[in-house]
Design a protein around this nucleic acid. Sequence first.
DNA 1: ATGAAATCTCAAATCATTTTGTCATAGACA
DNA 2: TGTCTATGACAAAATGATTTGAGATTTCAT
Lengths: 337, 337
Amino acid sequence: MKVNIYDVAKAANVSIATVSKVINNTGRIGEKTRQKVLDVINELEYKPNLIASALMGKNTCTIGFILPDLANPFFSVLARYVEDVASSFNYNVVICSTDYSTEKEEMYVSLLMQKNVDGFILASGFENFDTIKKIQESNIPIVLVARNAPNGDDLNLVSISDYDAGYNATTYLISQGHQNISIIARDIWSNRERFRGYVDAMKNNGLIPMNEIYYAKESTIQAGYNSLLQIMEESQIKPTAIFACNDLMAAGAIKSCKKLGLQVPNDISIIGFDNTIITEIIEPPLTTVAQPQKTIAVEAVNLLMNAINGDTEGRKIILDTEIIERETVKKIKSIEK
Amino acid sequence: MKVNIYDVAKAANVSIATVSKVINNTGRIGEKTRQKVLDVINELEYKPNLIASALMGKNTCTIGFILPDLANPFFSVLARYVEDVASSFNYNVVICSTDYSTEKEEMYVSLLMQKNVDGFILASGFENFDTIKKIQESNIPIVLVARNAPNGDDLNLVSISDYDAGYNATTYLISQGHQNISIIARDIWSNRERFRGYVDAMKNNGLIPMNEIYYAKESTIQAGYNSLLQIMEESQIKPTAIFACNDLMAAGAIKSCKKLGLQVPNDISIIGFDNTIITEIIEPPLTTVAQPQKTIAVEAVNLLMNAINGDTEGRKIILDTEIIERETVKKIKSIEK
DNA sequence: ATGAAATCTCAAATCATTTTGTCATAGACA
DNA sequence: TGTCTATGACAAAATGATTTGAGATTTCAT
């Protein structure tokens, strides 16, 4: 049925070793045999079986991309970029959504390791570091994305500084005259860091952080909606500005503002995070903290390819974020000290 | 380094054949040896190399999902569902975005075939049917999604009836009193069908289709934006309603309405397609034609799994769409006949 | 105790490739 | 003409699993 290297060898009157060599451009091959083999390959439309080739220790030309949720616009466009860059290296990417579940992380990693993927891009939480360790022990290259390395490990990493981004977003709100600022965050690494930045920015400006709670249970519109409701209910002093740790939650917050009869940005300002497509669609257009998604993808895949090709040095690339001013944050005069 | 079946066999004092049997639960194995082998497997943390196993003709437990654009919310959530269902069968999915390019389609399919994927879910255009034929010739199962089969082929298929959906959407607008209805579509299969439905619905109601042009060059917000501008510029009689063939384009159309000073739905009504997250976020909330994404994913993967397990019959599953009424379509009294 | 039958285990072949060390051929030179 | 050296091609081993037919062991009845 399917033509294999033996068929080619037979048709070209050479041995399979010779065929293998012309395919891989290795060793010494006479020009005439080389040409003959190539002709036969074309004629028979021979395509090497990559499974067999992988079994011999060659690359599978497949990487695993483990992320929290492909349905989240931030990750889906990131995935698209990753896919494009990987494809330019002739690589495929298998995408796995974990919902931040450590069990799923473990299970997907384990399965992909059995399938001999050449490397991993990890954008999920991986609070259980054992899973990462297991990959490292097998000497499979890793690039961490949108997450920081816990220790001074030799891990590759491409990320923003979530702490700085949180600090800057908060400082920005303060610079617009806001003093009562609340945060909608979730108990995951990136949000914790942004939260830290928020707290420090508040304190450094002589303000007290309004909450210390991770209101959001998920990174969804619904979670943002609920969180804002809860904040408004629980707070003695009502916030004039909300820092939502992603655009989805910001959208939810805006929704519940509407429900509460609060006008954005006149009654309450909101800043999001990620600069997803949502920001352009929502009304009013959402001010947000932009991550350089394309650059993240490019750097991550490049790092991974280098690692796959033997570069063992762990590199950390920290990229800058940028506040994109749209229409959900209003400059106010502070009313009370 | 890595422990293989020989290591297990040696440690358990049995042959590799025995080990293989206990792993796969085939043949007859004595309970005592069986237990001993299992113990050793646990102790050594042995995981079978799926590459080797695939080389022997076993499944790779990987499917290829070829779609137009992972960054498009419709496809990213579809992909997420597909991934989840596939994962419940212990399958991974490698996702490939084609941008409707037949070259990319061909290239991805070819590459994945070399990697022995067990099956394909095809949601891209595949205007060049040769690519699909090539897969069929290799007896690799296929499920077509969001696309119809051209001939009475024995292909598996899960889809909506785009013609009916287009017909119904248009009829709905007409039922709301609209007579001057324009369509924003793109020259791809699904949109052509919806366009056909639009044309027939207009004619059957004694109305004349306002345009016969595929205004949109892409399925993006920008394309929707441009299309509406163009429609308004070119039309003698201005439409009171727009049927946009996806939510993204509908969002773009709404955007340009705002720019033109047109109020939605008071000055102009808009209906979208897909019922993506966009519909909830945009202001006003978008009336749209909903596709049962989750069901599509479930049925598609199930069909594929059946096919992988030997069911050769080509089944066609056509699912119903539903018009979700939100706030972008206004009931009007027809002013002129 | 012996034979047949049932149960279990194993050696060897197979899958499609890569790779290494060996061998054959051709050309160059004496 | 005979020897030496490149050059290029090949045979065989290896990768890590599955599978089959044959052989070994146990069980049971006679």
